[in-house]
Design a protein around this nucleic acid. Structure first.
Lengths: 197, 197
DNA sequence: CAGAGGTGTAAGTGTTCACTTACTATACTA
DNA sequence: TAGTATAGTAAGTGAACACTTACACCTCTG
């Protein structure tokens, strides 16, 4: 009998690194040589873990949602009220946005949407994110506001769009940090209709 | 004396085609061979007009704003009141969003933001768009609402984010057309605070 | 301990693609 | 019409890169 394979274990260990490299460099410039180098292995080892570069990219897309939802659930673990929850997420995202550079993966993926596998990976990721945000928006809405203007679904899409825009602003330095943060909070508040007067 | 150069003229004629190809295929798959083929010329002719592929891409980025502002100004030409203007733009964008596929260029560019030239082309484009939208939001705000919750600047960024998200939703078919349109209008209304009760 | 099958190293390989070169044909001007 | 610079044709080049192959080495199991 041979020794037992450690492929799964190694795969799990390398995914965050692969994800990181795609985040920094995008698809085109994240060459297989670069990926291997950063993973401290040779190229052919990557090809034992994934059949091709696209599969590595798909794994990175999945990792994004996983990582972010871990962070969020940690944030929410000690939230007393659901109203607090969304505020916390917004505040966290306001500050830490783009730290992981994961939106670069999303942008790279969005230029490859004619590939059915990439498209469905992205679609799945967005659906899960939307559902999650939707849930928190719903829970976090101030009950005092009997008649919300926006449905939670629309508000959640708006928030995802806001987060995207905020990442772009940050990346292109379109606004100084403070202003960007204020913009994010103001628009998020407006969308969630949590502005009690 | 030689015959007069038609380079400028030809450049102007080809830019929309180049822009179109980048819109359809993104940066990576828009090969110089493909660009030349669609322009009905040989590759070296493109290289007489631009020094390299990046320059072609930069020209396409500039073209995006030009084209869109032409459309908008045509839309606004026969608007009686400024309040109508923004509504018209929103309605137009709601329906025609993504027709040109120009956001693909933006996404492609956003994965190349470490290149200073691409970065500044993008930055310029966003600043101009923001200014334009800002202007229309300001003009279109209902004067009855004395106290707006959002500054026009923030609202404009929110709208740009909304447009981006809407394009993503369309591309990934995350919502059926009608729902996407309703979402866009609802969120836009919320952001512009134009909801008179 | 034997050896099967796993892990790691190193050097390709074929293709794609941005970009070039050498040349011919054309059209404008003096 | 002669001469010159431009427009167009066609083949090529070198490099980058995704992916492979050949082989040595190790490690766990029966």
């Amino acid at each position: 009998m041979p020794r037992p394979s450690q492929i799964e274990e190694q795969t799990r260990k390398l995914i965050p690194i692969v994800c990181q490299v795609f985040s920094e460099l995008g698809y085109r410039r994240a060459t297989t040589a670069e990926l291997a180098g950063r993973c401290r292995v040779r190229e052919n080892i990557l090809y034992r873990l994934w059949p091709n570069k696209k599969a590595m990219f798909l794994a990175a897309i999945d990792e994004i949602f996983q990582a972010r939802s871990v962070v969020w659930s940690q944030l929410l673990e000690d939230s007393q009220t659901p109203e607090q929850a969304m505020q916390r997420i917004v505040r966290y995202e306001t500050i830490h946005q783009g730290d992981s550079g994961f939106y670069r993966i999303v942008f790279a993926a969005l230029t490859e949407t004619d590939d059915p596998e990439i498209q469905s990976a992205l679609t799945g990721m967005y659906r899960r994110f939307h559902k999650l945000v939707c849930h928190h928006v719903d829970a976090g809405r101030n009950p005092g506001h009997s008649e919300a203007i926006l449905s939670a679904e629309s508000a959640a899409w708006g928030l995802l769009g806001l987060a995207t825009m905020s990442n772009i602003i940050r990346e292109l330095k379109l606004l100084p940090k403070r202003q960007r943060e204020k913009m994010f909070e103001d628009v998020a508040e407006c969308l969630m209709n949590s502005n009690d007067s």
